[in-house]
Amino acid sequence: MTALDTAPPGQAPPVTTPRPRGRRPRVAPFVGIAVAALIAEIVPRTGVIADGVLPPLSSVVAELVSEAGEATLWQALGRTLRTWAIGLTAAVVAGVAAGLLIGLVPVLRAVTASTVEFLRPIPSVALIPAVILIFGTDFESGVVLIVYAGFWQVLVQVLYGIQDVDPVTYDTARSYRFGLRARVLHVVWPTTLPFVFTGIRLAASVALVLAITGELVIGTPGIGQLISVAQSSGATTRMFALVLLTGLLGTLVNVGFRYAERAALGWHPSVRRSENAR
């Protein structure tokens, strides 16, 4: 074997290394969006559903554009995002730390398994009254809800990730006398990282839902509160404009984290496109 460093020139693999997506323009998603927009435009005009209450999409978009010129909207958006970001960060840090500890210590894992399975399915929304009692109606309440919900998402993913550590990889590290720190740093953590990203993505969506829910129900200043005010004052178009904004926000969050995931996990089989993967 002499030609070692490159693949034989005869066979041209379709894509060897991760590179920018294909040049072919991707039409399908835009068709979907166009159809949905068309329905959102036409259905309200026919008056089939709740005559006069549903504004057509064009006026909702126009309202959103004009709202964008006002400081109130940006302030509210900033507050919602602050709650979201603080809660999400705390949830991820706590989830990763607890996950690593529980996952690496078999005794802890055995002891906590039943508790985790009990606490995890409690919907955070059900905790709102309790949270108000304990933390009041400031934005901290929203943060607490987010931390509670996001923590489990991250924790469970980290536990899955640690279970996924390949025994051969681990034995390799052991045979080369990697200490505990090196094993966690170079074997456990890289294996767990894709799971952590999944956890963060799930937690980010849940956190946004809860940030808005908290504002809607508790009345903490933010987009949720604006929606609530718009609804009670009969400003339907404004209300839908805000709803549309939350939708955009959610999409942006999801796309952003997917992008970060691809950037950080270039080596991972789900990201790389290697002809050797077989």
């Binding site: 051969v168 990889t169 034995d171 045979s175 170079h186 074997v187």
Partner: peptide, 17 residues
């Protein structure tokens, strides 16, 4: 110390990251 092991499953023994 002073021992190296080469495993059959090279794909899993090397660190892909």
């Amino acid at each position: 110390p002073g021992m190296a092991v080469v495993f059959q499953e090279y794909g899993r023994s090397l660190f892909p990251w």
